[in-house]
Design a protein around this nucleic acid. Structure first.
Lengths: 239, 239
DNA sequence: TAGTGGTCTAGACCACCAC
DNA sequence: TGGTGGTCTAGACCACTAG
């Protein structure tokens, strides 16, 4: 197959070729891929080898397969994929989709730490979006998101931001977040944030720093979130 | 194969049969399993079907395969598997194995909430082990672990507790933790705990509640941990 | 050299879906 | 009915390990 001379198992070469196409937007979110046999013909390998690569992408939530129908590119609009990365839960409550209110959007230069976290080189201009997420109409999370111009060209012209930014990223900027890395700390709430959340200054709060990773491995977004855990917990399962 | 009349794919039946044997201690941690062909013969399926089940168990960190050698039952003594579940990291530091000092061991009855979290029925007697974990010789984490008698018969007679309790569970009680579920909150440090950690009372701290899941799906341990995040973060990756 | 797991292929058959 | 993915098999060949 014409996949270069790297010494890699065929299925890995197929996997890499598919990742490359997906990150270039060759197949759009929600679109169907060719069948296993069609891909096998095109890439010059057997159907079983293609299958192994496809199934790997399914376990990574990048593709979706349905018996009798076909193989599709996963979309970030589905509720299931929202809850994959949204880990805050109301204590003893249902899984509810948070509503979101934008507090401010501003353009600025990333500081050194931010630029490092975002893996930025020279172009350090970012958009900073500050939002309040409410669960059951209770303000719960104060969130501040950094979007580099280098990753989202023209994002300063966006007029309306959807509840799930990842949907916007996928639809308009060909960015598919496949992994997030969270660092959690406990902090005393700063006055400004306490006010937004109707909480007391210096109350203990959970602070999450998140790097979001694109399908091509780049960090494409970095965010900070504050959450009082009187009513919410950050809930995660490790296997 | 003689695996009952459940309508399940063969590889799933093989997987279940292997899980059953592993949870019964048929193969001990570190031991080698029979080869693919031997298992296939014994179970009356083809080698490829056995392989699919084995590879699933490898992705779940339950088995370990080495080309040219064989298939082995994973052990919890390895450093790698320690860090799988230990998520606290020193800010900007290396991954260091924490040292542990036992503060107290006592036998008591679980309260209603604890019994519910542990999925206990009538036998609600538990051992409560309280420990301080230090990283780089700095007291970092105050941890309180509940071990039900129902799960660990005779554990009240243990004289020495290893740094990693999971090692003890696996070697003496045939318990292999394959998953943990953490709920994180931010709290004000209670006086007793602040003292143990050389911190100020009411300083904000991260509090982790953890349920540990055995290979057979049961919750086998429930623990609470307090950690000041001046120097440490809870770090996790979601995919 | 023999035995193990790792890769790759080819083909049969089934279950599901759409027309 | 034809096309898709899902399962299962059989066999060839390679790479690594140990004696």
């Amino acid at each position: 197959m014409s996949l270069g001379t790297n010494f890699q198992p065929l299925y890995k070469q197929v996997y890499d070729a598919l990742i490359k196409r997906l990150s270039e937007g060759y197949w759009k979110p929600g679109a169907a891929l060719p069948s296993e046999f069609a891909l096998a013909d095109e890439l010059g390998v057997s159907q079983g080898t293609v299958r192994k690569a496809l199934n790997q992408l399914v376990t990574e939530n990048i593709l979706l397969r349905r018996q009798g129908k076909g193989t599709y590119v996963s979309e970030h609009t589905h509720e299931s994929s929202m809850f994959r990365f949204f880990r805050y839960r109301e204590v003893g409550g249902e899984d509810l989709i948070p509503s979101t209110k934008v507090i401010s959007v501003e353009q600025r230069e990333a500081n050194e730490r931010e630029a490092r976290k975002l893996g930025l080189g020279d172009l350090t201009t970012v958009m900073q979006v500050t939002r309040i997420r409410s669960i059951n109409d209770k303000p719960a999370i104060f969130e501040s998101v950094l979007q580099p111009w280098a990753v989202f060209p023209g994002i300063q012209n966006e007029r309306e931001l959807p509840n799930s930014l990842y949907t916007l990223y996928q639809e308009k900027y060909n960015i598919s977040v496949v992994e997030v890395r969270d660092d959690l700390k406990a902090v005393s709430l700063p006055a400004e944030i306490a006010e937004h959340l109707n909480l007391e200054v210096n109350a203990p709060a959970l602070m999450t720093e998140r790097a979001s990773i694109n399908i091509d491995g780049r960090v494409v977004e970095w965010s900070q979130a504050y959450c009082s855990t009187d009513n919410f917990v950050y809930s995660v399962s490790l296997k």
